[in-house]
């Protein structure tokens, strides 16, 4: 109890801008590492992978805010927009690294998007995030009203698409991406369960 209240107290007092400021740094840090040999002998693939993974981790972090409040009472909802926008930022950089540093050739990029299922799925995931990022401001919330929440249900499609993209790009069925997919499906399942259990009394 005490711990929860302490955390909530801090969460109310802390400003959110440092989250944006610190969160903006990793892509620049990775670029620096890439230039100085810190990303190994295949820096472009490593840059793509690190940005993509960080994006997925932030998407997952965004999905944990609500269950965390429901189960423990810890309320970090003030930081959810920053977490979501940072996830979008990392995934945009991930896409940009692939377009500009890796493939470069527009014809091959287009062919990959159409022909490679894991890239098709990754692109779909990215596109479903665009309206979320575009409407993550107070003006949009006011303007869209109740529809704003419906638009943001797109995140329930975007995150599993990102996790499936991760599973598919590895050779064979590998442990690490399957763990991520499992966490994502788990976070979606607890929402469905909660919805189901909350609806039952009304029907009775």
């Amino acid at each position: 109890m005490a711990l929860k209240d302490t955390i909530n107290g801090w969460a109310r007092k802390l400003p959110t801008w440092p989250v944006y400021a610190l969160g903006a740094l990793p892509p620049f840090w990775y670029l620096y590492l890439g230039f100085t040999g810190g990303l190994g002998v295949e820096p472009i693939s490593e840059l793509e992978h690190r940005l993509g993974l960080l994006g997925l981790q932030f998407l997952i972090a965004g999905l944990t805010i609500t269950p965390l409040r429901n189960w423990t009472g810890v309320n970090l909802i003030r930081f959810r927009r920053a977490i979501g926008l940072l996830a979008f930022y990392y995934i945009s950089m991930h896409l940009l690294a692939w377009l500009v540093l890796d493939i470069r050739d527009p014809a091959r990029i287009w062919a990959d998007i159409l022909k490679r299922p894991y890239i098709t799925i990754g692109m779909l995931g990215f596109l479903t995030l665009v309206p979320l990022a575009a409407t993550s401001n107070k003006a949009s919330i006011r303007k869209l009203g109740a529809r704003w929440r419906q638009v943001h249900w797109l995140v329930y499609a975007a995150v599993p698409l990102g996790a499936v993209h991760f599973v598919m790009l590895r050779k064979g069925w590998q442990f690490e991406p399957l763990i991520y997919l499992g966490i994502v499906l788990g976070l979606l399942a607890v929402r469905l369960l909660r919805k189901a259990t909350r609806m039952r009394p009304h029907r009775a």
Partner: peptide
Amino acid sequence: DHPRWSQASERVIGAGFFAPR
């Protein structure tokens, strides 16, 4: 092609950050 990616080009290990495929 590999069903999941193109085999038309390759990345050269050690060629650095700005080297094309």
